[in-house]
């Protein structure tokens, strides 16, 4: 009887903690959402702490069209999609080779990939900046190529983990039937690994969507700003229009929100396959 009581109390304490946690997580978003509908006059001073606006307005959202944020979202979408496509394709090849084939130097390659994922990104920014200037690649979508540094190692690791989970027997019977390793990869392993491939694609997409330093440095022209850069430029030197900032934050968060709600399972599987021993 006593044990039952403590368990009940514990459950209660847990529930309270969970609710508190959810409030802490969600509160900034709610507050930002509220502010984005307030006229600039209500953001400052006395009504700053009011939850409901007296004169709700869509002005800040209309302003987004002029202040480059929408174009930033478009650019981010293009850059993230292109990077995801090519990184996923070459990671499938590399991941399969590393998971299934035996070749000399394999451990070296695995270590190299792991090491690259640990490099501080700042170390490549200067040389890449010079490279882009020499090639005339600044202010273009060529920024997708250096994005390989932040996304390839992660994608390869996720795919290696997933390829290893696929039972060997299918590949062996394919081999007995005379399939080459290439055919086995394309016709048998890839379809089976689709969930893993999808996971790695989503993690790559989110990683690139959020990238800031390279984008800030290489694409200085307004028309090539990605969403994070475009929104960071709303933070002016002397004055910040919080209405516009919060509206932009809401709009930039929406695609992420959709992705997270739709693909929660895949994202968690991708995150943990990088950090869990199977």
């Amino acid at each position: 009887m006593k044990k039952l009581m403590t368990n009940k109390n514990l459950t209660k304490a847990f529930s309270i903690f969970i609710i508190f946690y959810l409030i802490v997580i969600v509160f900034p978003f709610i507050w930002v959402l509220v502010t984005s509908f307030k006229p600039e006059s209500e953001i400052w001073g006395k009504s700053a702490l009011k939850l409901i606006s007296e004169n709700p307005t869509l002005d800040h959202y209309r302003a987004l069209a002029q202040n480059n944020v929408l174009r930033g979202i478009k650019n981010s979408f293009i850059v993230a999609s292109l990077t995801t496509i090519y990184v996923t394709v070459i990671s499938i090849f590399a991941g399969y080779a590393l998971a299934r084939l035996q070749f000399r130097g394999k451990n070296f390659v695995l270590t190299l990939v792991l090491a690259v994922s640990m490099f501080p990104q700042m170390i490549v920014v200067g040389p890449i900046y010079n490279m882009f200037n020499e090639l005339g690649w600044t202010n273009s979508y060529n920024i997708i190529f250096p994005y390989s540094m932040i996304s390839l190692p992660v994608a390869i690791y996720i795919l290696v983990t997933h390829f290893k989970k696929i039972p060997f027997t299918l590949e062996e019977s394919a081999k007995i039937d005379g399939a080459t390793p290439m055919q086995t990869l394309l016709k048998i392993v890839t379809p089976l690994a689709l969930p893993g491939i999808f996971t790695s694609a989503i993690i790559t997409f989110i990683g690139v969507w959020n990238e800031y330093v390279l984008s800030l440095t290489l694409n200085t022209d307004l028309s090539f700003h990605t969403a994070p850069v475009a929104i960071s430029f709303l933070r002016g030197q002397f004055e910040i229009f919080w209405g516009q900032v919060t509206a932009a934050a809401v709009v930039v968060t929406i695609p992420t929100l959709i992705i997270v709600l739709l693909f929660q399972r895949q994202i968690i599987s991708g995150l943990t396959s990088g950090a869990l021993k199977e």
Binding site: W209, P228, L234, R235, T256, L257, V260, I267, I268
Partner: peptide
């Protein structure tokens, strides 16, 4: 997952506002 998934720059601006 949402705080993790939104761009760090956006969360920085949100906190700057708060």
């Amino acid at each position: 997952l949402i705080p993790w998934a939104i761009p760090t720059v956006v969360s920085a601006l949100i906190w700057l506002y708060l």
